[in-house]
Design a protein around this nucleic acid. Structure first.
Lengths: 185, 185
DNA sequence: TAGATTGTTAATCGATTAACAATC
DNA sequence: TAGATTGTTAATCGATTAACAATC
């Protein structure tokens, strides 16, 4: 497949496909193009998606429970889907011990002691906004350096920690800009 | 508040704050800075966030139900939060008629007829990946031109329709790039 | 070989920053 | 008035695109 075809699929120019790939190496053959399966595997390796990533979810409310089911289904049904949700945490004593799908809910206080043993590398934060900062700090103590935060609030993390925000309403608010306003034609 | 202070909060340079605001008008006073409450209100208006946006949710599974509760809580508790979830749709006859929070689930087939009467301007798509495209097409027929898609699949929409993707796993896969690989130091 | 397409260099484009006259 | 900060213009920076020698 040529850079032209790849770009068509991705919605970018052929030149950009080649330039971006050049950051990581040489994957194509002059006059021929790219061998798709080979390119896919190389990129999966480069992007760290070729091996299991062990994930904890903190805050087992309705959104958290939904994400447990969603992630678990994809992990079991989709070959090569390497995001593995392996532990749940909550600070509510009434929830601790309960099961969601195949997983039991641990005490949030045990995050620090359990994370290393379980090999947790990433955490999903689905707690109320007012608790997100303290949970992020608990993750820091547990040496978890990749966080996906669903709480609609800014969270301050150490410099070596990466945090992504998944604020659903924020995304909807972005879309709102494109709605026909009452003031528009 | 000066562009310097605003930039510090937003994590951008003072010059960029001024340049970006200049796209929409003149909001500051020389020597003084910006009046924050006025600026906030102006921007809310410009971004179409100053009036109610009526939203439908399609696909009332566990993720959909969680989002209903989440949106409804923010709408009722947060002043000025104008995203109003007003209708639920599902194609499963066993779900139609059931209530989730304050809302009843409608037949997906009724989307086209109900959307105009309900003033739906935006839709959240939380159906399985294999149904996302047909649901997007139903939205097009219902003249809904802003979609937030949670299904992990590409959806083709008309040119006048805006679609945002909220693929949780994709965000986690992005984070994976920054994890220390087995091959790194 | 002739045609096609890569990887890369040079040119272009757009976005960010620096600088400053205007003025609160 | 003197100091501060805007809105805007010019300079800089980085990202995208065009072009092409290398070569499959």
């Amino acid at each position: 497949m040529s850079s032209h075809e790849l770009g068509e699929h991705a919605g970018v120019s052929p030149a950009l496909v080649r330039k971006d790939l050049a950051w990581f190496g040489e994957f194509g053959k002059q006059g021929v193009g790219y061998e798709v399966a080979f390119l896919r595997d190389e990129l999966r390796r480069i992007l760290n998606l070729d091996r299991e990533i062990r994930v904890a979810l903190i805050g087992v409310g309705s959104l958290g429970s939904a994400l447990v089911r969603y992630q678990h289904r994809r992990y079991t049904e989709e070959p090569g889907f390497n995001l593995h949700l392996v532990a749940l945490f909550d600070s509510d004593p009434n929830k601790v011990g309960a099961r969601v799908g195949p997983l039991q809910i641990h005490r949030l206080d045990d995050l620090e002691s359990l994370a290393p043993a379980l090999g947790i590398q990433m955490a999903i934060i689905t707690v109320p906004a007012e608790n997100a900062q303290e949970v992020a700090e608990a993750c820091a103590r547990a040496h978890i350096k990749a966080l996906l935060n669903f709480a609609p609030t800014k969270v301050i993390v150490p410099a070596d920690t990466h945090i992504a925000h998944a604020d659903v309403s924020l995304e909807m608010q972005r879309l709102a800009y494109y709605l026909d306003g009452a003031d528009e034609g």
